[in-house]
Simulated assay, not measured.
Amino acid sequence: MPQRRTVTSRSQEPRQRFAEEVRRLREQGGLSLRQLADVLGWDPSTLGKLERGQTLGGPELAQALDRYYGTADFMLTLWELAVADPTQFKEQYRQYMLLEAEAVSLWHFGVSSVHGMVQTSGYARELISAGGHRGEELDLQVEARLGRGTVLAGDEPPRFRTILYEAVLRMALRDRQAWREQLEHLMVIGDQPKTTVQVLPFSAGPFGLDSTEVTFLGLSGGRTVAYTENAHRGELIEESSSVDRLQLAYDSVRDLALSPAESRKFIGQMLEEAPCDPST
């Protein structure tokens, strides 16, 4: 049997193929990175990292490329394939990440960490490195996580609510300045029109989600799915009765949480208490 020939020189690996297409379209249009960045309104360094395969960015950037080049949903499709690539992300996260990019609303309760969409670079790096990632893999994971936050920075961001248990705010990072930046970012995020940040204080007492990190994704058409996770595994829950039970528990947590205004004051107090880096 004759050997099967490769019909294209383009990469068959999804992440690399996405990077190749970002560069090919730019060069075909005779644009520099700076010129393309000016047209799209994105940072040129981000576009450079896209072309080198160092980051995937978020769906908003892929859609911006499609609009500019008139490629329908081609770049968005390549982005989705790259995100879903099992060599880049664990199986348990792949379907969730695709749904997260489509969601019209996200409601989150964090019992141990800040939601990935509102994590700063320093915070994400310490959390991911604590899970054992090092070197280039660590850099890729941090870039991918930060790319998720671009959804909230788009022209039509989803409604986003996060309720953080006080323990999340008490677990400071080793990097003092990075921890202050994360607290400051939460305050900025909480001031955005479609974003709500609340704190569940220790004084609220026992609550139904005491061992559960959960995110509810409201999808177009009115369907809601839930994603629960711990340090070892995540589970996408689509069965309506199970989602309803989790939502009832979430509602009870929200009733116990501080109001958005009280939560902002609480985070501000945490910021005042956070130690400064003596070198700054």
Rank of each mutant, 00 (worst) to 15 (best):
L47N: 12
R125P: 00
K265I: 15
P193A: 08
Q198W: 09
E143A: 15
A62N: 06
I128W: 04
Q198L: 07
M270R: 10
A124K: 09
G30Y: 08
F216A: 08
W107L: 00
R233W: 03
A261Y: 02
V253Y: 06
S112C: 00
D175F: 01
F109W: 02
Q28C: 06
A144T: 07
V199W: 08
T71G: 10
L81T: 06
Q35I: 07
R94V: 06
P157T: 11
A84N: 05
V111Y: 02
R4F: 00
R176P: 03
V104C: 06
A82P: 05
V22W: 00
V111C: 05
E238D: 04
L81S: 09
L209M: 02
A153C: 08
H108S: 13
L169Q: 01
P201F: 01
S240N: 12
G116E: 10
E60G: 03
W42C: 05
S9I: 10
S241Q: 10
V39Q: 10
G268M: 01
T212Q: 00
N230K: 03
H133K: 02
L106I: 15
G110E: 11
L65W: 14
V214K: 11
A172G: 02
R17N: 10
Q63M: 06
A84T: 02
L140G: 07
N230L: 12
T150A: 08
L219P: 05
T195W: 02
A144W: 04
R264I: 00
Q192V: 00
I189P: 06
P260I: 05
V188E: 15
R10Y: 01
V142S: 02
K49Y: 14
Y123W: 10
T196D: 07
R174E: 15
V22F: 09
T224M: 00
A178I: 04
D255M: 09
W79C: 02
M270W: 14
E100H: 13
R134E: 11
A101M: 13
Q28M: 03
I128Q: 01
A124V: 02
L217D: 02
H133M: 07
S129I: 07
A167V: 14
R15Q: 11
R161G: 13
D244C: 04
L186D: 08
L169F: 05
Q192G: 01
A274L: 12
E102G: 07
P157M: 13
E60P: 10
E20Y: 04
D43T: 11
S203H: 08
L256Q: 15
E21V: 12
T196E: 08
H185V: 12
T46R: 09
Q119W: 00
D175W: 05
R148Q: 13
S45N: 12
S129P: 04
S121D: 15
P44G: 03
C276N: 01
L209T: 05
T228E: 05
R148A: 07
G149M: 11
S279P: 00
Q119I: 10
E20G: 10
